[in-house]
């Protein structure tokens, strides 16, 4: 070992002694993680059910019905995205976007929800979508099966709250996710619900030590809720283009702050 290393180490040691290091992961996480898996399983059951109805409509050529079912179906997927994303092949085949393919919408490889969204809204047709729909349903079922037999890695669960906010911050706030249907606000709802669920599950573990942190996080979730509430329409939301610039900024700031704050959640719970 080298002295240069020792100098580095000494800095570390001082941080250590000043207590900047978070606690160790404890077995108190067992219950929240178990609860979360149950939550995810329920969402998946709903996703399979909804996707069945959605793909049936697509295959029956019922454009309007399929359009109606599109956003609510995605809601369950968006809520559990951090876990779904653990299977990157399925995430790509279920939820990738045209930008992921060099020829964009024209690319024959472009699959999943957004491929169908493109057909329904841009072409107002279900033509050629039947095989895409079949594949989507099969993928969603496969996902349910894989997740059922997955032991949830605690750091992925706790980190999931931040991941959901990162998703929104990086590629959703711009309205590029559901660019044909503009149903982005539904997806937001799913993402926020999923993140909040995680925070609520681990809340008892940090309620005492991190009261201020939780207060800030709750306040930001609150901001999101009140902002989204303005755009409520029946069971769901109006299209994304109706979102005012001001509200978009409010949402963006809340999302960035949530991403920033929730990124510390893992560390706070000892899961580096």
């Amino acid at each position: 070992m080298r002295m240069s290393g020792l100098v580095g180490a000494s800095a570390l040691a001082f941080i250590l002694s000043s207590g900047a290091f978070a606690q160790e992961a404890s077995l108190d996480l067992v219950e929240p993680i178990a609860e979360y898996k149950i939550y995810v399983s329920e969402k998946l059951a709903k996703l399979v059910e909804d996707t069945t109805a959605f793909t049936d409509a697509v295959k029956a050529g019922e454009v309007d019905k399929a359009k109606e079912l599109f956003a609510p179906t995605r809601l369950s997927y968006e809520a559990i995205e951090p876990i779904a994303e653990l299977f990157s092949d399925l995430d790509a085949s279920i939820d990738s976007r045209a930008d992921d393919y060099e020829k964009a919408e024209a690319d024959p490889e472009f699959p999943g929800f957004h491929r169908i969204e493109y057909g329904l809204w841009e072409k107002n047709s279900t033509e050629g979508l039947a095989p895409v729909a079949d594949k989507l349903l099969a993928d969603v079922k496969e996902l349910e099966g894989r997740i059922a037999s997955l032991t949830f890695p605690p750091e992925k669960v706790v980190g999931g709250a931040a991941v959901l906010m990162e998703e929104v911050a990086a590629t959703k706030i711009s309205g590029e996710e559901d660019r044909y249907s503009h149903t982005d606000l539904w997806d937001f709802r799913g993402n926020f619900d999923g993140a909040r669920k995680i925070v609520d599950l681990v809340r008892p573990l940090i309620a005492d030590k991190e009261a201020d942190f939780l207060k800030t996080v709750d306040a930001n979730f609150e901001t999101v809720d009140t902002t989204l509430a303005k755009y409520k329409d029946g069971e769901g939301y109006v299209t994304y283009d109706k979102l005012t610039d001001d509200d978009r900024k409010v949402l963006a700031a809340a999302v960035n702050t949530l991403a920033e704050d929730l990124s510390t959640l893992r560390g706070k719970l000892g899961l580096d």
Binding site: A162, E166, A169, A170, N256, A259, S263, R266, D272
Partner: peptide, 13 residues
């Protein structure tokens, strides 16, 4: 590089 997200990733990771 998703730098904002990276900056919010634990050092150890």
């Amino acid at each position: 590089n998703f730098v904002e997200r990276w900056d919010r990733t634990p050092f150890g990771e």
